[in-house]
Design a protein around this nucleic acid. Structure first.
Lengths: 192, 192
DNA sequence: TTAAAAATAAACCGATCGGTATATTCAATG
DNA sequence: CATTGAATATACCGATCGGTTTATTTTTAA
């Protein structure tokens, strides 16, 4: 957000176009030429603002991260801080809505990781950090609930989170994510 | 396998090289030139045997499917047919070993789907069919166990299966897949 | 108002992409 | 032994890749 206010109008259009194209068509199948023309902008402008395709990829991932966290906050903020159980459940509600509106092609981070095998690519840091962050968010709420082994349970919840996303994108979750939420309840009940 | 016995030696070398390169480097970042040279073979031979890169991609996915099912059978065959519960659990044991030895970079099918956005690409059929098959395998064993709603529970198990794979590839499953197996037990106990 | 930053326009670069052509050699089988 | 399928070697194709260059115009702030 701080980062976005300092972006020029053309940079915003580029990031917008790149986000859609990268997500829906894949990172490597889309060329900078396509992104520039889709954004109604010159390739020169793209390179002046972002430096390289790799840096644009990083910006795309960071922006996706920002949007997901903003979306998630809309859900978390409605739950009072003394209801950590409901906070956890609301993460899955947020995910459900997110999948319906922004993620018909699966998790942008998982997909991007598939296309970024080089250990040194800076985009990978963004991806790993995003998942680690979510796991820690689960763990924090679990600790408030005074669960033993908060980290272990957080791991299970994260697994579910990722599993839903994959199956949803393959049209294998026939009941929306209701199945997943039942399993969440099961895990929480079992360890309390 | 029937398909593999009729493959020429060069075709086998090509498929072998392509499988490794596609899985570890991604489908679009690897060119046919690289595959041919890695296989110690001419590009002409590659095109004589596989026709196009897209058809080679399909062959790669079919071969991966064959190998996973063969690996899985090694586990399932050890369990007698009148123990469907243990059959289900052995699927997750098979997955654990599979992840350790063949899947450090996540699920080949999920990754490939990320790179094949076009609805008409024949590789997508292979991918969807693989997941649908696994879900049905779960459902079959659950029906033998006389579970109500075998399909719904199969869905939950598939979610776990996919979730493990994702978190494993991101080094987020600190206890191997022990956490996942606990959740499997939880699901099975809850619905019996 | 004026100077700097941002954006346009368009040509250009070497490298690589997937795929083809032609001509030659090798290996197996009837 | 002859035929045929498989493989090699190599040059080539147009298209596209990510990225650069130069020159000009527009926008924005001090």
């Amino acid at each position: 957000m701080d980062k976005n206010t300092k972006r020029t109008p053309a940079a915003l259009k580029i990031l917008d176009a790149a986000s859609q194209l990268f997500y829906w068509k894949g990172i490597h199948s889309i060329g900078v030429e396509t992104i520039a023309s889709e954004a109604g902008v010159t390739k020169k402008t793209l390179y002046d603002r972002f430096g390289s395709k790799d840096q644009l990829i990083v910006a795309y991932l960071e922006e996706r991260d920002r949007q997901w966290k903003k979306h998630l906050d809309n859900y978390l903020d409605r739950i009072p801080d003394d209801k950590p159980l409901q906070k956890i459940l609301s993460i899955f509600d947020a995910l459900e809505k997110w999948l319906e509106t922004n993620s018909q092609r699966g998790c942008a981070f998982v997909n991007a990781l598939a296309e970024l095998p080089e250990a040194s690519h800076p985009g990978r840091k963004v991806i790993f950090e995003e998942k680690r962050w979510l796991k820690q968010l689960f763990a924090t709420f679990l600790r408030h609930l005074e669960f033993d082994q908060a980290d272990e349970i957080a791991e299970k919840l994260l697994m579910l989170h990722e599993g839903i996303t994959v199956t949803y994108s393959m049209n294998l979750s026939t009941n929306g994510i209701a199945s997943a939420k039942e399993t969440v309840q099961l895990i929480l009940n079992a360890n309390q």
